[in-house]
């Protein structure tokens, strides 16, 4: 603010401060207004109501035999559901935590040990690991193997070898009945 050297320097000083206040207050209001206007323009890119409404699915698991896997789509991503064999459950449960890159007990990854439910997206860079279908490479730990960059997951979906940083993610799910699970 231009201050003139007059004899009433005191007065101009006070005027200057008052004007500064008005200027700062105006800019602040304009800034708040701009932010309030910008928010709807940005937030419209977040998931819409109908997208969020599709965020949970129900899956009948009674048709999955022991040793079989199915893949279902949830929120646009594959979810692996595997009816594990006794052998796989035992192997998964007997692993020492010290051998794991992302230490987690098998019991913490399942609500019913027979069924392993997890998101089939490699935690490295988002590819879908192999191992769901018979004949596919299951990796060195008899679980899943990501062909993109060579991550090996065990029969509990935990990362054992390769670049992926953490275990395959477990989606929120509940058993509605013995044979019906709700994901999401």
């Amino acid at each position: 603010m231009a201050k003139t050297n007059t004899s009433k320097q005191e007065d101009t000083h006070v005027d200057g401060r008052r004007r500064d206040f008005i200027v700062v207050a105006s800019y602040a209001m304009a800034g708040i207004g701009a932010a309030a206007v910008a928010w709807p323009l940005i937030d419209q890119m977040n998931p819409a109501a109908d997208t969020l409404a599709l965020a949970s699915i129900e899956v009948d698991i009674s048709k999955i035999d022991i040793g079989q896997s199915i893949t279902v789509k949830w929120r646009g991503k594959p979810v692996f559901i595997r009816h594990r064999t006794e052998d796989e459950i035992n192997t998964a449960q007997s692993v020492e935590l010290s051998q794991l890159k992302d230490p987690q007990l098998d019991v913490d990854r399942v609500s019913n040990p027979k069924y392993l439910v997890m998101i089939g997206v490699c935690t490295h860079l988002g590819c879908v690991p192999l191992g769901q279908k018979t004949g596919e490479i299951k990796g060195e730990y008899d679980g899943w193997f990501c062909p993109c960059h060579g991550s090996h997951y065990d029969s509990s979906g935990r990362i054992r070898k390769g670049p992926a940083p953490v275990n395959l993610e477990i989606p929120p799910y509940t058993f509605e009945t013995e044979s019906l699970i709700k994901i999401g």
Binding site: W39, P40, L41, Q44, A48, A49
Partner: peptide, 13 residues
């Protein structure tokens, strides 16, 4: 209509 009902702030935009 989806913009009007479902998209965040879609009605406003």
């Amino acid at each position: 209509e989806r913009i009007m009902r479902d998209v965040n702030h879609g009605w406003l935009l």
